[in-house]
Amino acid sequence: MAELSAFTKVKSVAATHGSTTAMPIEPRSVVSITAWRGAAPALADAAQVTFGLTLPQPGRWIEHNGLAAIWAGPGHWWLQRDGRSELLAELAPLAPHAGLIDMSDARAVLRLSGPAARDILMGLLPLDLHPRSFTPGCAASTLAAHMGVHVRQLDDAPTYDLSCLRSYAGSLWRALELASAGPLRLPAA
């Protein structure tokens, strides 16, 4: 079956302003893992042994061999890989220790990158994104224009990934346009 973009309703799906760009990251595979009660240490061991992945501390994310682990709460992480893959099956070794849920079709991811990215997001997210408090490797879940989003910083460009419920993808895109109004305006959708 053909892949349908979560951003189909948005006319310009890759917008640029100067060297700051916004684009959907599609397709990608996302699995939510939540440690069973008391099983967090066993889950961390299994992730380390099987995938060489050190599950990140609160407010952090890491990547190993293209597999990203993003902290989402105590005992709760998102595992994510760019491109469509059988991630849920790949993660089966973690199943004795955690509940695994395939969220690939439930989430939409938007990547904002470039010199203006931080200023744009500062107008959208109620977080302090100044480099003294939010750096590459940091992750948080919060609200963007009343939509729940997960945000993580990838590099010092700076580059950020925003993940929201798939059906909010168009609304998040427009909120991003509003947040970038003025000198940072992205092309209208």
Partner: peptide
């Protein structure tokens, strides 16, 4: 009127 101990859920954060 003063100190109150109450339950809040961090719905849009860690959900705890």
């Amino acid at each position: 009127a003063g100190l109150h101990s109450e339950l809040w859920q961090h719905t849009h954060g860690c959900r705890r």
